[in-house]
Write a protein that binds this DNA or RNA. Sequence first.
DNA 1: GTAACATTTGGTTATTATGCCAAATATTCA
DNA 2: TGAATATTTGGCATAATAACCAAATGTTAC
Lengths: 106, 106
Amino acid sequence: MDSRDKALYEAKANVLKALAHPTRLWIAECLADGERCVCEFADVIDADFSTVSKHLAVLKHAGIIEDEKRGKQVFYRLKVPCVLSFMHCVEAVIASRVAAESELLR
Amino acid sequence: MDSRDKALYEAKANVLKALAHPTRLWIAECLADGERCVCEFADVIDADFSTVSKHLAVLKHAGIIEDEKRGKQVFYRLKVPCVLSFMHCVEAVIASRVAAESELLR
DNA sequence: GTAACATTTGGTTATTATGCCAAATATTCA
DNA sequence: TGAATATTTGGCATAATAACCAAATGTTAC
């Protein structure tokens, strides 16, 4: 593996890392339905505003979402919607794990 | 968001987290071509055997890969191959980021 | 049984991520 | 201008990860 490959795997892993947090994943899925104002998140997410803001920054820095300021509010939307296309597969992983566990308990 | 939803987002994030490391992502993509012996990884990955082993354990624990011992060797294979189906999208995220950056430099 | 081999596990340390608080910034409206 | 609102930033404490080394485990061959 040369250094170019290495850099590519690091870049890909970083995109995944941005999504690999419950709150950020929720945000991303939420944005799949359309853009949202930051204020709309804070109500649902049980965390400080600053925490939510930092999660948004991580997703933005990864290139997954983009923001637009309109008046006092900031709206976010998915920049690359396909990032969620594989979630049904992630759910399949979980389902397979659950199935294996219940098999053990049988 | 109730506690059941919360648990689901945590579970999904954990699957992503398992993939969100350059070495583990490389391993997963490598296994997409078919099963591999641990010994085959160690040659390519520039890291201690124990490090590789721990990465494999993370992927296994997440339910993404499974192992089988045959003789002295242990073989791993993808348990849920679709986990890599979205990698072209992750690459799209990177491409979009690169495009934006080169736009800035224009 | 002992040696050799393949892999995993335990322990330690360094790095990174997370979440809260307080303070800063930007925007609107009076 | 000054108050009110919306969001971000900086700082700090704590928790989670990652990598290495050494030691343990399991397997085959002598």
